[in-house]
Simulated assay, not measured.
Amino acid sequence: MSQAPTENHPSAVKQLKVPADTTFHPGKKGAEELVPSRYALKIGDIDVMVVSDGVLPLPTEMMGHNADATVRANWMADMFLPPDAFDWPLNAVVVKSGDKTILVDAGLGLDPNLNLPRAGQLIQRLQAADIDLGSVTDIVLTHMHMDHVGGLVVGGIKERLRPDLRIHVAQAEVDFWENPDFTRTRMPDGFPDALRATAKRFLADYRNNLRTFKDEQEIAPGVIARRTGGHTPGHCIVRLASGNEALTFAGDAIFAVGFDQPEWFNGFEHDPEEAARVRINLLRKLAGTGELLVATHLPFPSLGRVAVAGDAFRWVPVFWDY
């Protein structure tokens, strides 16, 4: 694999509880919520909340379909994970910067006949956190897979959003989904059709709200979306920076297995080799800066940092701040 970085420089980023008078309020605890589903912090002057959209079960082969089956099984065993299928976490982020409230990704939404009953929780969890959909000024989509846009096509949701809502997405992503090519992916049956249908519905419902960009777009003070490609042609990450603090939301550029095995191919990747290069470069950069990382499919709240581990990397989760 590509050579990993040789040193790590942890930053002085410190997690802080968000004061009660900010946009984010604790809300009422849901009667059926047995585990935490949202986590608030500050990046300088920027308020951030990580919100769980639930989990979805997928075959373990999708974590590294180019890896030897025995090696992959051994990694799963070492991580105390089941051998055949396990639950992928789903995370989205709400950001308050200046006068803008930004939702980064929109969750799965309704189950598209794929038996995913524990996913699609984002909207109700935003409501439990007292975040009114009508207060969202901008949405950034890391890409247009159904677990990132599906929440927007649930019946009645569009009517609750602002008419002047801005949805930021890379132009390459929009172009790709006009005629998607899945020849290099490795997805379970039913997923390709569900992905196509959800993306088509999203574009039909929200085309007038799209604000596309080529490579990089500033969404609000200190909030920048940057296209990486790889996972999908228009996949992007979102970096928050304020003062001497920073956090990167990596979308689907990084999965749990990607620290130990960054060159393993994920089944949803449309260009697996490019996705591996993007992953390694991003991990190398994050290990160098020591800034916080959040990603869609890391275990909630998915906050942590990246360190170097020999010729690979190591995930260092943060200690929760109560």
Rank of each mutant, 00 (worst) to 15 (best):
E32N: 06
S135W: 01
A241E: 15
V104A: 12
K29N: 13
A246S: 02
L195Y: 15
V154R: 06
P57N: 13
R226T: 15
A220W: 08
A31R: 12
D175N: 15
N113I: 08
D78E: 14
R279N: 01
N115V: 10
G27H: 00
D84G: 07
G155P: 08
L293I: 03
A40C: 09
N115F: 10
T212S: 13
A77D: 11
Q3M: 14
E178F: 07
G150M: 11
N91T: 05
K158V: 05
D215S: 15
T232P: 09
W264T: 04
L240D: 01
G134M: 00
P233F: 10
E61F: 06
P19M: 10
F265P: 03
M146C: 09
A250N: 01
E7S: 14
L303Q: 04
G234K: 02
L303Y: 02
D87R: 10
E269Y: 12
A307K: 00
E32K: 13
P299H: 11
D147I: 03
L203D: 07
A220L: 07
M76D: 03
L247C: 01
F182T: 07
L34V: 07
K28T: 14
L203C: 10
T198W: 03
L161I: 00
V104R: 07
Q171H: 11
T101V: 15
L126S: 05
S2V: 14
P89K: 04
V223A: 01
M76A: 08
G243N: 02
D252M: 04
E218S: 12
L292Q: 08
G267C: 04
A287D: 06
S302M: 13
V306P: 03
W315H: 12
I139E: 00
D87N: 12
E159C: 06
K28E: 15
H235L: 08
A250K: 03
G151K: 00
G190F: 05
I254M: 01
E218Y: 04
Q124C: 04
P59I: 02
E178W: 06
Q261G: 05
V154E: 15
A256K: 13
R162H: 09
I157V: 01
P26K: 14
G190N: 04
G222M: 04
S302V: 13
I224E: 02
T60K: 02
I219D: 11
D111M: 09
A204R: 03
Y39L: 03
V223F: 00
H65V: 12
L116Q: 09
P112K: 09
H235P: 07
M187K: 04
R125S: 06
